[in-house]
Lab assay of single mutants.
Amino acid sequence: MAAGGDHGSPDSYRSPLASRYASPEMCFVFSDRYKFRTWRQLWLWLAEAEQTLGLPITDEQIQEMKSNLENIDFKMAAEEEKRLRHDVMAHVHTFGHCCPKAAGIIHLGATSCYVGDNTDLIILRNALDLLLPKLARVISRLADFAKERASLPTLGFTHFQPAQLTTVGKRCCLWIQDLCMDLQNLKRVRDDLRFRGVKGTTGTQASFLQLFEGDDHKVEQLDKMVTEKAGFKRAFIITGQTYTRKVDIEVLSVLASLGASVHKICTDIRLLANLKEMEEPFEKQQIGSSAMPYKRNPMRSERCCSLARHLMTLVMDPLQTASVQWFERTLDDSANRRICLAEAFLTADTILNTLQNISEGLVVYPKVIERRIRQELPFMATENIIMAMVKAGGSRQDCHEKIRVLSQQAASVVKQEGGDNDLIERIQVDAYFSPIHSQLDHLLDPSSFTGRASQQVQRFLEEEVYPLLKPYESVMKVKAELCL
Rank of each mutant, 00 (worst) to 15 (best):
R296M: 10
C305P: 03
E462R: 12
N357I: 07
G451M: 01
M389K: 06
L186N: 06
E328K: 01
T167G: 02
R337Y: 02
R14S: 15
D430A: 09
P16M: 12
V251P: 02
K233V: 11
C483Y: 08
D422N: 14
M76Q: 14
S434E: 11
S12T: 11
K233L: 11
P435F: 04
F145P: 00
C399R: 02
N71P: 10
D398R: 11
T111N: 05
R37Q: 15
R374P: 03
S290H: 05
N353F: 06
V368K: 08
S261Y: 02
T450G: 09
S334E: 02
V478W: 15
L183T: 13
S261N: 03
A78T: 13
A335V: 07
P378G: 05
E60G: 11
F236E: 01
I265D: 00
G240W: 00
Y114M: 03
D422P: 10
T58Q: 13
P298T: 04
I72Y: 11
Q458P: 09
V414I: 15
K367R: 12
F212D: 04
F30E: 02
M316I: 11
R194C: 09
K229I: 01
I424P: 10
L406M: 14
P446G: 05
V168S: 05
P100H: 07
T94Y: 07
F36I: 15
A163D: 00
I105F: 09
R459I: 11
M26T: 05
S395G: 11
T350I: 14
G169W: 03
P281L: 06
N336T: 15
P366W: 06
Q455P: 15
C27K: 12
H91A: 14
H263G: 08
G104I: 07
N71M: 09
T321Y: 08
K224P: 05
D87P: 01
N353Y: 04
V226E: 01
L46W: 00
G96Q: 04
S395M: 08
K233T: 11
A344D: 03
H263T: 14
A344R: 03
H400L: 03
V390W: 03
E50L: 07
T154I: 09
F212E: 07
K147M: 12
H97T: 12
L271H: 09
H400V: 05
M89W: 01
L183C: 09
Q63K: 10
T52Y: 12
C304V: 15
D215A: 14
D182K: 06
G361A: 14
Y466T: 14
E60V: 12
L314G: 09
I237S: 09
G109M: 00
Q205T: 09
T382P: 00
L440M: 07
D182G: 03
I424S: 11
L209N: 07
A410Q: 04
S15I: 15
L346S: 10
G203T: 01
H91D: 03
L174T: 08
Q439Y: 14
F460E: 05
P10T: 15
M476D: 15
A235W: 12
R270M: 04
L128W: 00
L69H: 08
F157I: 03
N126G: 12
Q455M: 09
P16A: 10
V324Q: 06
Q320Y: 11
W43C: 02
Y294E: 00
S67K: 13
K101L: 14
S454T: 13
I385W: 05
I265P: 03
L406I: 15
C304Q: 02
C99E: 04
R85Q: 01
W326L: 12
Y243E: 06
N357W: 05
L252G: 13
T154N: 02
R141E: 14
L461F: 06
K134W: 08
Q210G: 11
E370D: 13
L331P: 00
R296H: 03
E25Y: 11
T111L: 01
S207N: 02
D182Y: 05
L311H: 01
N384H: 14
E463I: 11
G156V: 01
M316C: 08
A322V: 15
R194S: 08
E383G: 06
Q439R: 07
S323K: 05
T382I: 08
K229M: 10
D178F: 00
R396V: 03
R337T: 00
P366M: 03
E473P: 15
P281H: 11
Y13S: 12
D32E: 14
D144E: 14
A260E: 07
P24R: 12
Q409I: 12
W326G: 04
P471S: 15
I176S: 03
A3E: 12
L222A: 05
Q285S: 12
D333I: 00
T202Q: 09
T227K: 07
Y432Q: 08
A127Y: 03
G104S: 13
D178W: 00
H442Q: 10
G169Q: 01
V115L: 13
S301L: 15
H442S: 13
E328F: 06
E228R: 12
K402R: 13
L469E: 11
H97M: 14
I72H: 07
T244H: 14
I424F: 10
N68W: 07
E277K: 04
A163I: 00
S112G: 04
Q439L: 08
T201N: 02
L484P: 03
Y432G: 08
D216A: 08
D191M: 10
C399F: 06
G4A: 15
L42D: 04
L271R: 01
P100M: 08
L174C: 11
D223R: 02
F36M: 07
L443T: 05
C99M: 03
Q409Y: 05
K75M: 11
G361T: 11
P133G: 14
E417R: 09
F282D: 06
V29I: 13
A230Q: 01
E302I: 03
S306P: 03
D144M: 15
D398C: 11
Q356L: 09
S112V: 01
R245F: 00
P133E: 09
Q164L: 11
Q416N: 10
F212H: 02
T154H: 07
A78F: 07
M380I: 09
T167E: 01
H107F: 00
H93K: 14
